[in-house]
């Protein structure tokens, strides 16, 4: 097995507040890795650091052995890391198809002038990415909505569009930020199927943030539990649910809620 993502001693401070405290973990190729913890534990902050939105106060992020700390977010995508957002962020004026096509942006390598003068490569590439987009939408079962405005879809389907859009960028590592949030049990089950499919058909490694322990247990091979920016557990899901620290962190959270 080889490591695809290596988060090394990352610390992130906002003003005086420490959001992430000396966090390290590594994800192996082909894994579904979970990052869980109560609200405010710093999970999304970690995503933002991996994807280059934030620059960590200390520490490094290695992707496939190369240092990507502080690489611009759009460059991180071209290196092979894609993400979704906690609160779905689709391009709201655009159709489902166009949302997916955005993901194929770098594949469609025709120039601005080729587009303006409608040169052959424009037609060739546009046809290719449309075919690819339809195939991808079929995998997610959203091809029937291709021409609908993305934001007219149901919540569960919007989530699928967002994941499909991320997959379209041809990543090797996919970061999913609370993919099951707000879904009903039926939709959650579909999501599990899709994630399994992604792993097998697209050869993806998945790092996911979740709040829902049950979902994580079913999905992940390995997980890290965060509480107030600190790692309190790393290991197999089965061991996590009996770990005292994890239980107390979660109980505390439930009390707040």
């Amino acid at each position: 097995m080889n490591t695809i993502l290596d988060v090394k001693n990352v610390t992130m401070k906002f003003g005086g507040v420490t959001a992430i405290d000396n966090l390290s973990f590594s994800v192996e190729k082909g894994e579904v890795y979970g990052l869980i913890g109560p609200n405010g534990a710093g999970k999304t902050t970690i995503f933002n650091i991996i994807t280059g939105v934030l620059y960590p106060t200390e520490g490094k992020v290695l992707f496939e052995g190369k240092d990507i700390t502080g690489t611009k977010p759009n460059r991180v995508v071209s290196k092979g890391v894609a993400r979704t957002f906690q609160n779905i962020r689709l391009f709201k004026s655009m159709s489902v198809l166009d949302n997916i096509l955005i993901g194929f942006d770098s594949y469609a390598n025709y120039s601005y002038l080729e587009a303006i003068f409608r040169l052959p490569r424009y037609f060739k590439r546009e046809k290719e990415i449309r075919d690819k987009a339809y195939k991808l939408m079929e995998v997610f079962g959203i091809d029937i909505f291709a021409d609908n405005r993305a934001t007219d879809l149901s919540y569960g389907n919007q989530r699928k569009v967002e994941i499909a859009r991320a997959v379209a960028t041809n990543p090797r590592l996919l970061l999913l930020d609370e993919p099951a949030a707000g879904m009903n049990p039926n939709e959650t089950a579909q999501l599990s199927n899709i994630i399994h499919k992604l792993k097998s058909e697209f050869d993806l490694t998945i790092l996911l943030i979740e709040h829902d322990m049950k979902f994580v247990n079913a999905m992940c091979n390995k997980l890290t539990v965060l509480d107030y920016g600190e790692k309190i557990f790393e290991g197999k899901p089965a061991d996590a649910i009996v770990d005292e620290k994890v239980i107390s962190a979660y109980l505390g959270d439930f009390k707040h809620a």
């Binding site: 994807t51 939105v53 611009k72 977010p73 759009n74 995508v77 071209s78 894609a82 993400r83 957002f85 962020r89 689709l90 391009f91 709201k92 004026s93 655009m94 166009d98 096509l101 955005i102 993901g103 194929f104 942006d105 770098s106 469609a108 025709y110 601005y112 587009a115 303006i116 424009y122 546009e126 859009r165 991320a166 960028t169």
Partner: peptide, 24 residues
């Protein structure tokens, strides 16, 4: 074209566009 789509993406949600690899 992909350029027009990217422009619209930037208009709709600049952060999400960046996260799709677009150089905004």
């Amino acid at each position: 074209s992909k350029y027009g789509r990217s422009m619209k993406a930037v208009r709709d949600d600049e952060d999400a566009a960046t996260a799709m690899g677009i150089n905004t």
